[in-house]
Each structure stands twice: as structure tokens, then as C-alpha cells.
Nucleic acid binder design. Structure first.
Lengths: 341, 341
DNA sequence: CTGAAAGCGCTTACAG
DNA sequence: CTGAAAGCGCTTACAG
């Protein structure tokens, strides 16, 4: 393991000179031949600065902890792409963790709230994250950014326009003549679930249609839960003609439940999912879904974090551009004239 | 940011004493009251040792780089669970990266091969990883473990028994009376693809059936590619009655191609996928798949890495227990008497 | 233009 | 039982 000192000795210069070469220090001037010689030695010996030493010196690790509800859920693919892109831009290493691992007393949490371990944390909120954990994080000096709309005063956040997203889904169903619309939400106590429901309700209100409480179901945050919830929904016998589902992986589970009940999509029931992901186009039936700028969420999340770390002014905000879009695939069907103006 | 020194000052003891308390040093003895006082101060001030300083001192970072072909592919969920479990056990932080990011000159690669940045690397091989990158890694002092069967002499590895896995799939189809069996493989030049093909060929050989070269297709490493490949396969007009597919997410794409061609599974074509994942049970039709011990692969991968790092003797090996299993779901159908003995 | 020295926060022999 | 000191590898004023 070759060190700065060794390079300096071989080059016959001082360590500060070598350090200056590496960091392009403006304070230190040197002859071009010296610079080239040092650079040559660095190349030759494959010298790379020791990261721990640098971190200690700079009081910065360039490690960014990123916590999402479920690493392997393809829903988060776009988000992660954005985060990794932002991290690459600002020179961060990503330490990716699952929210379920982030419990009081876990090593992961210790690491994150420990000093000098990570420069900060980016969190996609989820119902599995306790308020206690969040407040532990907020108390730390290292910045924390929430990748979620939030009313948390202590923590800056960046979020998606969930209301507009599900409103889009609702308008799509209304335009296809559906006047009885259901909603399959995630965790009841997760604020995002409520915002998504609000988007639906608001559009129905606009055209004077009620949102039947009997057509609102919760607990569909992931496919297996969505399967169970949809099964209960179907068994209730009180079915709408179109259902808006929490997210597209959950929709997979709901679709399975519908198929197992002997119903067809979209003939018997139209389905629109909130949140798209790349491979959703390759599932049959292909699910009509609301596309949100998840890449931007991740990318701008890192940007916000970076401003925060630098002490620059930064405010929480909702991403409004690009606006959510609807990707019409094969799970929705016209059953009558449009109910929109 | 409270430091060791501050704790020591407040406690009225030396820093070495505090350090000894933290590390349960056997060399340093102290009175129980002193220990309690120090512990109390640590608790009170929320002191956590600075990670960079420790890393510098120990010449160890406790960071483990983990590279997989595609972070968001649910195929790797079990593998990641195993890796994270092993990492937690041995006190590692996981730095997770996508193989596509790991190209010559990328910051990620610089980080991994840099000194003092990570203690080592766990890699799930993939066709996107160049041999050049691999040999750059192998040259480094920090250990690298391949989570894949390999003939690489420089790098220790741990792998799955791929042949037995696809052999199981082949036997399943044979037992259902299929004598014309096809194979939809991943990248042609990826050795794992060949091993998977070998497993199929070997079982057909045993019962004296040929594996028709016209029924072997490559390039189905992920859903979109599998869709395209399956579409070509179907267009060839020379179809088998059962097809074994590279992995279960690819199978999703292949299934979509089959549906779009107006064929039904399993009525017109039986499908078995290699490699299962949790949510595969929630896709319709539910895909019959070979279950491999992916959790073990990840977990034992970390174990192997740890032995390597400690300089303990360690040999590359294939995981044979638990053995691969077949999960029969709804994509295979009997079309005749069993062809097995 | 270039080098010696201090110090980031920690641990570990070593001396008392 | 306890403390002073060296050193991990680096960067940055500072002195020459």
C-alpha cells in the first residue's frame, strides 16, 4: 500500500508538494517538470489517496446513506437511478439500506447517526419508519433529506405531486365513462396514502360524483398485501367498475386476485396504478399507470442534500415539472361516454 | 461533535482510559466506578467514535462493496437479503452498486480499487463486467469474492449449482410428457448461460432425446430482451412444447411475447423458469420455477470474504445444500405420459 | 517556488 | 491501576 510519503521520497520532494499536485492546490506553485515527475510516479505506483485519512482531515466521508422502503421493489428503480446519478455528480458513495433494517438499536442506524460515518441521509419515508428513528436522525448534525412530501418541520423534504398523479388516474377512468370508482390504498396511517386518495376524491367532486367509502380499501403497499386486500374487496360484492391502485407492483398482486376470482381485466374491471416502472410494460395485461418523475425525485433529492450540507439556503418543495403523466396500456376500458366536460 | 478527548476531560481521566472502556480492552484495568462514570458520560453526550479515525488507525473501513448486475431486479432480492444479513453479522456496511456502473474510469471503480475505501468486494458476475475490470480488482490487495461459479484462478468464488437447477426444470417437463424442449438463455458469452444449458442437455441425453439446436435461443438476460427473443422464437414456426427460461423476470417478458402472439400458457406452451423470486407467486399465470438458495449464496459469500480477509484458508465452492427445488405453479401442463423411468 | 510542522480522532504499546 | 506519546495518512497554513 503505497502512501503519499513514499511517492514524495521517490520523487525527491516533500509530501506537501505531492499533496498539492493531487489536489491542484492554488497555494502551491511548482515547475511543470516536477509536476510531471510526481504525476508519473503516482501513475506508476497506482497511488490512490487513503480515503479514511482524507475523511478524517476533511471531516467528511463522501458517503451518503440512502434508505428506501424496499430495495428490490422495481418501483424504486427510477428513484435509485436518480440518486446514483446525483451521487456520482457530487462525488458521493451510496450506502443503500432498507427501511425495515432501520430500527432503533440496529447497526445500520448506529452507523447513520454515528459521527464521521456518513455525510448525511436521504430517506424515502415509509410506514415502517418510526417517528422515533426519524427524530433521532433529525437531532444529528449530518443533514437528512426526506424524499417524500412531509409536514415534518425539522427535516427538509422533496416530494412528488401525488394528488395530481391520482387525479390523472381518476380523470382517465371518468373519461372512459366510469362513474363508480374504487381506491386500493397503501398503509392507512401513511400520509402519502391519504394524499393519493385526495387526488381521486377531488376529481370525483369536480364532476359531482361521490367516492363511496365502501370502495376504499387500505393495506396494499406491496403485492402480497394487495392480493389479500383485493380478495376482500371482491368478496364484498359491492364492486366499482374501475379501481385505482396505490402503486404498480401492488397492482400485480391485485390483478392476480382478480384473475383468481375468475374476473377479467379490463372487461369486468378497469385498473389504473399509481407509479409506473420500466418493466411494467412487459406484464400481461400491461397495466395502465401514472408515470411520476422518480428519477428527478432522486436526483434533486441529492441536490437538495448537497445545498443543505453546504449551508446554502434550501426549501422543501414538491416537484411539479415534469408533471405526472398517464401511460395508457391494457387494463382500462371504455364503458360509456366520457363524464368529463 | 463530541470527541474521545472531551469525554476524557469531563470524566477527569485520560483518553486511553476512555478508549479502553469503549473497546473493552483487556490490557487496561480500571475500577468499576470509573468505568460507570465514563459510560455515563458517553451515554449522556451521545458519543460515537469517529469512523474515519478508527478506519485510519485500524487500516480497515468495515465497508464492503457489493456489485450485482441490476439492483432493482427482484431476482436478486434473496441474494441481497443474504448479503445484508452476513454484513450485519460481521459488522460491515454495504456499499451496493450496479455492474453497469462499474466501468473503467468510473468513480465507483476508483473507489473500490482505491486504498482504504472498502475492505473488499463481493461481485455477482455479469456479462456487462469486462475482464479488464475484473483483473484490475484482482490485482488489488483488498479481497474480491465472486458470487458465481467461475474458472477464474485469481479470484475465489462461491456459486450455485446451475446444472442441477436447470436439470430439475428439464426433468419436470420430461415427467409431463414433453419430448421437444427449448431453452431461452441469457447472454451467449456468459458462462452461466452455458452451464444452465448443459443441465438441460444432460437430462435429455439421459432419456435419449436430442436437444434441437433450433430450439436454443440466447439473449434473454432481462425481460425486454426476453420479449424480443421469444418473439423471434415464436416466429421461427419451429416450436417445442416446453421451454426453459434463463430466469424468472425474463420469463415475464417471454410470457408477454407469447400472449401477444395469441398463444396460451400452459395450453399451447409450457414454461419453466430458472431462479425464483418471492413475488413470482403473484404473477398470473404464476410461473413454475426453480428455487435456488440465493440467500445462502449471499450470506456464505460474506463468510467466504471474511475468511479471506482474515487470511484464513478458504476454497471456492458450489453450494449444494440446500439443493435447488422446483416450485410447481401454473405454467406447465401434462401433455403425455412421463418420459422418465 | 519548496519544506517542516501541526493536527484531524483514534488506538496501542509503553512507562510509571 | 492510569497517563503521556507515537503514529495511522492526509492537508493546510506557515516559514523560508
Amino acid at each position: 500500500m503505497v502512501t503519499l510519503k513514499e511517492i514524495a521520497e521517490r520523487a525527491g520532494v516533500s509530501v506537501s508538494l505531492v499533496s498539492a499536485v493531487i489536489n491542484d492546490s492554488p497555494y502551491v506553485r511548482m515547475s511543470d517538470t516536477t509536476r510531471q515527475r510526481v504525476l508519473g510516479l503516482i501513475e506508476e505506483h497506482g497511488y490512490v489517496p487513503n480515503h479514511s485519512a482524507r475523511s478524517l482531515r476533511y471531516a467528511r466521508t463522501n458517503v451518503l446513506a440512502v434508505i428506501i422502503p424496499h430495495i428490490s421493489d422495481p418501483i424504486f428503480e427510477g428513484l435509485l437511478d436518480g440518486v446514483y446519478a446525483g451521487a456520482e455528480k457530487h462525488g458521493y458513495i451510496v450506502m443503500l439500506g432498507d427501511a425495515v433494517q432501520l430500527v432503533s438499536g440496529s447497526k445500520l442506524l448506529d452507523r447513520i447517526i454515528g459521527h464521521g460515518q456518513v455525510d448525511g441521509t436521504l430517506i424515502r419515508h415509509s410506514s415502517t419508519l418510526s417517528g422515533e428513528v426519524l427524530s433521532q436522525l433529525a437531532k444529528r448534525r449530518a443533514p437528512v433529506v426526506l424524499m417524500d412530501v412531509s409536514d415534518n418541520k425539522d427535516l427538509p423534504w422533496i416530494g412528488l405531486d401525488e394528488r395530481s398523479g391520482t387525479a390523472l388516474a381518476a380523470r382517465h377512468l371518468l373519461s372512459l365513462g366510469h362513474h363508480r370508482i374504487g381506491f386500493l390504498g397503501g398503509e392507512r396511517n401513511y400520509p402519502g396514502t391519504l394524499r393519493r386518495l385526495e387526488g381521486v376524491r377531488q376529481e370525483l367532486d369536480k364532476v359531482g360524483l361521490p367516492l363511496d367509502e365502501k370502495c376504499i380499501y387500505y393495506g396494499s403497499q406491496e403485492p402480497r398485501a394487495a392480493y389479500a386486500t383485493m380478495t376482500r374487496f371482491l368478496a364484498s360484492g359491492d364492486l366499482p367498475t374501475g379501481v385505482i391502485i396505490n402503486n404498480v407492483t401492488s397492482a400485480t398482486g391485485a390483478l392476480a386476485a382478480i384473475a383468481d376470482a375468475g374476473l377479467r381485466v379490463p372487461e369486468d374491471l378497469s385498473i389504473v396504478a399509481y407509479l409506473d416502472y420500466r418493466a411494467a410494460a412487459l406484464v400481461r395485461p400491461a397495466i395502465t399507470a401514472v408515470d411520476q418523475p422518480l428519477f428527478e425525485l432522486g436526483y434533486q433529492g441529492v441536490e437538495l442534500f448537497e445545498r443543505l450540507r453546504r449551508g446554502e439556503p434550501c426549501e422543501s418543495y414538491t416537484i411539479t415539472s415534469p408533471a405526472p403523466g398517464l401511460i395508457t396500456r391494457s387494463t382500462t376500458k371504455r364503458i360509456g361516454p366520457s363524464l368529463l366536460d
